[in-house]
Each structure stands twice: as C-alpha cells, then as structure tokens.
Amino acid sequence: MRNKDLGTAGTGFHDWYWQRISAVFLLFSIPVLMGVLLLTYNGNISFETLNIALTHPISKTLCNLFLFAMLIHIWTGLKVIVEDYVHTTAMRVFVLNVLLVMLAGFAFYMTYHIWAELAYTFNCIPCGGG
C-alpha cells in the first residue's frame, strides 16, 4: 500500500524515484566512462580511436543521456544532503536555487560541447576542431 502522506514538498516519492532510475542508468554507463578514461591514461587509446568512439552520433546521444542522468542524480543527492544539514529554511532555499542554476548551466554548456563538434566538422564555427 502506498503512503498517502506526501510530505512537506507535496510531491510524494518523485525525487526518490528519479534518484533510483538515474542510479540504475549510471550503474551501467559510469564504469564504461571510467574504463575509457583509465585506458586513455595508460596510453592504450589513441586520439583516432577516442575521436571515432566519442563523436559517432549514437555515442553523442548516449553521452547526452549520461549527462542528464548524472545531473539528475547529483541534484537529488545534493538536495537530500542540503535538506539534512542546512537547518534554516531561507538558507536552504537559497543554496538549492544556486545549485539548480549551476547544474542547469552545466547541462546547457555540456550539451553544446557534445554536439558542437558536428559544427566544427562542417566548418560552421570559425575556431575549428584543433
């Protein structure tokens, strides 16, 4: 039976639910990312391999999904921590809003960073691919 008391936020178990959904997605994607980073560190992945692996449209899409899952997980996790340790309501609202703006900004910037390489390839942006 589901609990009818939705708590102070009035949104029931949404945060809890999204934290678990993103956790299951990250459980499979984060080891791949860390493996690629460690192999690159060891010199086992050359620039050509890394470029092909991460600029394919499918991997761009997966990178974007990973980005959103990571940011949802960061938001729900930090929210729980802030709600536990910041005891003044005004301060809590302020801190959570600052965090939300920072995470949203990072989401926009990284989405641009993931897809801008297409623009570099077709010479749409003057700075080029390097």
Partner: peptide, 20 residues
C-alpha cells in the same frame, strides 16, 4: 559531484581535438 563532471568534460574535449 566535484570531480565526475570535470572528468566527463576532459574526456569529451580530448576526443574533439588533437591539441586538447
């Protein structure tokens, strides 16, 4: 939270250009 976004950014930048 402090390190993973940086690592993701670094890996993406490294895949986009030889200099990076």
């Amino acid at each position: 939270v402090l390190t993973m976004p940086m690592a993701f950014w670094l890996l993406l930048s490294m895949s986009h250009g030889k200099i990076m």
